[in-house]
């Protein structure tokens, strides 16, 4: 039983990070139908920026966390302005190819600046695990869970309640109609890239605190695909629920199946799910089926 709870906690932590990364991905897809292959690189750069501010600049962690979010906001706006804006009106496939190019470029840049070695954050959270009942949970896990929950709730409220959030969802529904409301569609695209960069950075920083940072962090960008396919490409609640589910699934299969089948099943499992979901429920669990009145 203890083992099960341990796995569940670890799964929820990783899952909530997946949920955040997926949230950014879904946002971009929803508002502009662009599939962003550079999500993992945004995560890497966010993590490295925070590390650089904390270690090399000697800024306290919380401060550098906040500064990183601001920098990520700027990065998102800059990417949209420099690369995506000129592509408006071009075929969507070209834009998707562009994000692949973008991902390779961003990865290259971060290798040039920060190298390929694994680097770790200084001890931000105490390494003494928190005891709850009979199980030990690393403190960093609890903080990650808390922080990502805060971000997820905040963004859900943002989309439901605020003027900009409603405008973003309206744009996702019907761009021309949104434009006729006086909503600047270009600014909505920019905003969605900025938010994607921010949530990816938060995810990257949390993962960096758990495992350290190196270039392989970008593979979390790929993990986002099983999550969003399961949740539905265009569903924000779907991204959150599916993120947690995939995290748990990975954790359980790592814990129970790895000893039986041999290691690595943990990495494969999400993609097995991806295939199954595509075969039986292509819109995902929460994806919007096209509403068509007959």
């Amino acid at each position: 039983m203890d083992f099960f709870i341990q796995l569940s906690v670890a799964g929820l932590v990783i899952g909530s990070v997946y949920a955040m990364i997926a949230l950014g991905f879904v946002l971009i897809y929803k508002s502009s139908s662009v599939i962003n292959f550079a999500q993992g690189e945004l995560l890497l750069i966010g993590a490295f920026l925070c590390l650089w501010l904390t270690v090399d600049m000697g800024i306290p962690f919380l401060m550098s966390f906040a500064i990183t979010l601001v920098l990520a906001l700027g990065l998102g706006f800059a990417i949209e302005r420099l690369f995506l804006r000129p592509m408006i009106g071009e075929p969507i496939l070209s834009v998707i190819m562009l994000t692949i190019g973008l991902s390779i470029m961003l990865r290259g840049i971060s290798i040039i600046i920060w190298g390929t070695d694994t680097r770790t954050f200084p001890e931000v959270f105490s390494s003494e695990p928190v005891k709850i009942g009979s199980i030990n949970i690393p403190e960093v896990y609890l903080w990650s869970l808390l922080l990502s929950m805060i971000f997820l709730v905040a963004f859900s409220l943002f989309f439901k309640k605020t003027r900009l959030g409603i405008a973003m969802r309206a744009t996702a529904d019907d761009q021309t109609a949104a434009l006729s409301m006086g909503i600047s569609v270009k600014r909505i695209f920019a905003l969605s890239w900025a938010i994607a960069a921010i949530v990816a950075s938060v995810g990257g920083i949390l993962l960096g605190n758990i495992n350290g940072i190196n270039i392989s962090l970008t593979q979390f960008g790929l993990k986002v695909f099983p999550v969003v396919i399961l949740g539905g490409l265009d569903s924000i609640p779907g991204a959150i629920v599916a993120g947690l589910m995939i995290g748990l699934l990975e954790s359980y299969s790592g814990g129970y199946l790895d000893p039986l089948i041999g290691s690595g099943i943990k990495e494969v499992m999400p993609f097995v799910i991806l295939m199954i979901v595509l075969m039986i429920k292509p819109y995902g669990l929460f994806g919007q089926e096209r509403i068509e009145r007959v």
Binding site: R169, D173, D174, A177, A178
Partner: peptide, 23 residues
């Protein structure tokens, strides 16, 4: 008001009205 109504189909009625007040 565009031809064919063009409401935001995945938003609620009230959210549609709020979207109209964007400017």
């Amino acid at each position: 008001v565009m031809e064919g109504r063009r409401v935001f189909v995945h938003l609620t009625v009230e959210e549609n009205l709020r979207a109209g007040a964007f400017t």
